[in-house]
Amino acid sequence: MLDAVGRLVPFRARGFAPRDVPWASVATLVGVVLLWQAGASAGLVSTKFLPAPAQIVRALIDLGISGELWLNLSISLQRLAIGWVVGTVAGLALGFAVGLFTLARSPGMAIVSALFPIPKIALVPLFIIWFGIGEGSKVITLAFGVFFPTVINTMAGVDGVSRGLIRMGQSFGLSRAAIICKIVLPGALPAILSGFRITTSTAIILLVAAEMIGAEKGIGAFVLSAGNLYDTDNLLAGIVVLSLLGLAVSWVLGRIERALLSWR
């Protein structure tokens, strides 16, 4: 029998709802750097093997003043830009072709499925043999690495566009080109842009690998050379530059996404 007052029903749907706390991200990073610096200053961490943050900052300033940083960075950025653009343009072209045309779908997917799993770094020596030790092999390595994820994301994006929207366009008599430009392209854009996040990271990894294998200049070559000389200050300064490069690219992509996908 129920009692007259009744029992309070407890709330049971707590948790499983993680939230972003922006200040906690900053605090964590600052905390790690401070702990690292404190450990190095107290002699708990060997600065020969792991330089203190202050040493890395000093090395970065010196590299900036001497111009070495800008020289290596500009060469790397150039390779990154050319390789990424070439791979992206080719990947978008094949991705759209595979997503839109029966004629391209099976042959395109066969090529992508066969070549995508190959670790691209393993191809660097082959590209050096084919295209020489100069810029060609590095750009092709990057482009090759960027190409496949771009094809896959673009194709997935095109496939993901609601067939209902395409039929709507057809029912209003829109031309094929108009349907591609006004319905398929904007509809596939979220997947394409999310693919760009993957391909820019891949491009930076391949850039460093290619520069380590066959380059005199560039951030990758600089990091390798510093390592060979046990110059850990400059080695880590180079790594910090790469990390900042990744963050900068991610920030730019975030701004582009916000501008182009504000409708979401």
Binding site: S162, M168, S171, F172, L261, W263, R264
Partner: peptide, 15 residues
């Protein structure tokens, strides 16, 4: 457009 549809799921471009 002589034959024109109104769709069940509206078929609007969200962008």
């Amino acid at each position: 457009n002589p034959l024109t549809y109104v769709f069940q799921d509206f078929a609007l471009l969200p962008w």
